[in-house]
Design a protein around this nucleic acid. Structure first.
Lengths: 230, 230
DNA sequence: GAATGTGAATGTATTCACAGCT
DNA sequence: AGCTGTGAATACATTCACATTC
């Protein structure tokens, strides 16, 4: 359908592709720093650990930015991916919860590869509020609504204890935040128009444990379980 | 194939299922604490934000542990999922890199829901080595090989700067570690038998930015890009 | 009646393999 | 000759819908 001739790209990039674009971007930035002008799908695939056909298909969703027989222009591709990811503008981020993790996040210097700026740090604990962390003064959680409006925060990072997370999440959504990165080990309840991504240490460890167990259980590998069940 | 009558489960649980089991487990533990004895797929699905048919299919990969017309026994299911994930044994974890993030990880009290124990903290910086963090004395990275052997470490957590990550990774693998959780923003090169999972703040933010951009660009939504390209 | 477990249908992602451009 | 871009084939994952069991 829609056989319009110069239709450079399709809206609706597959989610799996979106998740890999930042990876390509980082690798390309490395190449750029080393002054390398062009790269083939094979090389970029090797640098990012993906299959080269997959990489080409991913890039083809953005448009036709390669040159057959040559490869991709590094700078041009950096620009195109950055634009697609929305990194040509700056996004303001608020970090809620300034415990160990919140501090670690705030101090994570190369905050993304630019494109993001920490607009505020918020916490509820009196002994933390007012402290300076990563060049910012920690503000009280009660000013969340003000901060989001005034600083035009579009991404909220939740680094609170599990119990506080849903409440913070609700408040963020109520003031119009629609993108949330959640480090608290809870499933957040949000309306459809809100995107939540979660980072969960214990889930990652458990997935690793699953595979580790498989590896160590290589011996007879099938029936000891039946015994337990019997 | 293999129509053996009482074959309780199939080895080879889909990866997508494995990634959700920890979620179910956490929700079940919550129910357990509240003294709730049984749960239906619908209830558990609601608590974890998944579709109930998906949940049932996931659980069916472990075996047939539900009761039609009733639901699942909470305690029994906790046990079965724990066992499947390998949480009935304890796994020793070494954290390499004791900067802000490493400290945050070390202090993350509920380290998983048990099943994991931090066996060692390692760092290269003289000003960190010897310090006590989260009840452990930080050891020098040179003792990595000793620590892994003596403490029987099976999971390595890399929380070093990007430059150091591949080197640390290689050393872990050389002493037999086959499960790695990587927080450094680099693609680690590892042999096939090693599992790596990565947690990458800037990738998560970029994925959110992509969707955020889509949401804010709702107006004409198709052709302004062509103008730029022309 | 209520809820599981699962074939069948659908949707999404990866990989192959090669036509087409430079 | 080399490498992209992409249909076709395959693999994986989700969802539907219902027969089966308690």
């Amino acid at each position: 359908m829609t056989s319009r001739p110069s239709r450079p790209r399709d809206r609706g990039i597959p989610e799996a592709t979106v998740a890999r674009l930042p990876l390509y971007l980082r690798a390309l930035q490395g190449l750029s720093e080393r002054g390398i002008p062009t790269v083939s799908s094979g090389e970029l695939a090797a640098a990012t650990g993906v299959n080269s056909a997959k990489l080409r298909k991913d890039l083809s969703h953005l448009g036709s930015y390669g040159t057959r027989g040559v490869g991709y222009d590094v700078e041009y591709l950096i620009y195109q991916i950055s634009r697609e990811l929305g990194l040509t503008q700056d996004w303001s981020v608020a970090i809620i919860g300034v415990g160990n993790l919140g501090r670690a996040l705030a101090n994570y210097g190369g905050f993304g590869t630019r494109g993001f700026r920490i607009a505020a740090l918020l916490d509820a604990a009196p002994e933390v509020v007012g402290r300076r962390v990563a060049g910012l003064t920690v503000r009280h959680i009660d000013s969340l609504e003000d901060v989001v409006s005034n600083e035009d925060v579009s991404i909220g990072v939740i680094a609170t204890p599990a119990k506080a997370a849903q409440g913070v999440c609700d408040r963020l959504i109520a003031v119009g935040v629609t993108s949330i990165l959640n480090f608290a080990p809870v499933v957040l309840n949000v309306p459809d128009h809100v995107d939540v991504r979660k980072v969960d240490l214990s889930i990652e460890l458990q997935i690793l444990a699953f595979h580790e167990q498989r590896k160590s259980a290589g011996r007879q590998g099938s029936d000891w379980v039946d015994v337990l069940d019997a």
